[in-house]
Computed example of a mutant assay.
Amino acid sequence: MTTATPTSSQQAAFGEPNPYATTPATAAETSGFSIASLVLGLVSIVAASTFFVPVAGLVLGIMALKREPASRTMAIWGIVLNSVMLAGTVLVGLGFAVFGLAMLPFAFV
């Protein structure tokens, strides 16, 4: 002999919103300035001596801070990486210039 027992289900009644339904995740819209700044920041680690790669990444990072508040972290990292590599390039260039000027009197001996 079988007995019927009521079971509790996790379904909502017809017409009522389902409290167990998950909401789909929405993707944040970015126009790519912050991603480009971060990528150029990583590329400038290798290509910092070109001077143009860190400058372009720095400009894109500053533009991304103003235009893309959702991807602020990537823009900040791009600005930091590009600034450090740009400062390193300028310091190395100044060091070479000072060394060259210091050795100039010995060039014609």
Rank of each mutant, 00 (worst) to 15 (best):
A21E: 09
R67E: 10
P24K: 02
P6R: 14
S37W: 04
L58Y: 04
G61Q: 02
G32F: 03
L81W: 00
P17F: 11
A70W: 01
T89Q: 12
S44A: 13
F51Y: 05
A48L: 13
T2K: 08
T30W: 03
S8Y: 09
A48I: 07
S71L: 05
V39G: 04
R67Y: 09
Y20K: 08
V43Y: 10
N82G: 04
Q11E: 10
T89R: 06
E29M: 09
S49L: 06
T30A: 13
A64I: 03
P19I: 09
A4E: 10
A12P: 11
A36I: 02
A87P: 01
T73N: 06
A87V: 12
T23K: 13
P6Q: 14
V53L: 04
G61V: 09
A27D: 05
A13Y: 03
A27H: 07
S44I: 08
Q11C: 11
A21Y: 02
A64G: 06
S83M: 09
G32C: 04
G32R: 02
G41T: 07
F33A: 15
S34L: 11
T50S: 11
L60Y: 04
L42I: 14
T2R: 06
G57T: 02
G88H: 02
I79F: 05
I45C: 06
V59H: 03
A56N: 06
P69L: 05
T26L: 08
F14H: 13
F52P: 01
G78P: 06
G32Y: 02
L60W: 02
S44Q: 07
L81V: 09
V53N: 00
S9A: 11
A70D: 14
K66Y: 12
S44N: 14
G88L: 12
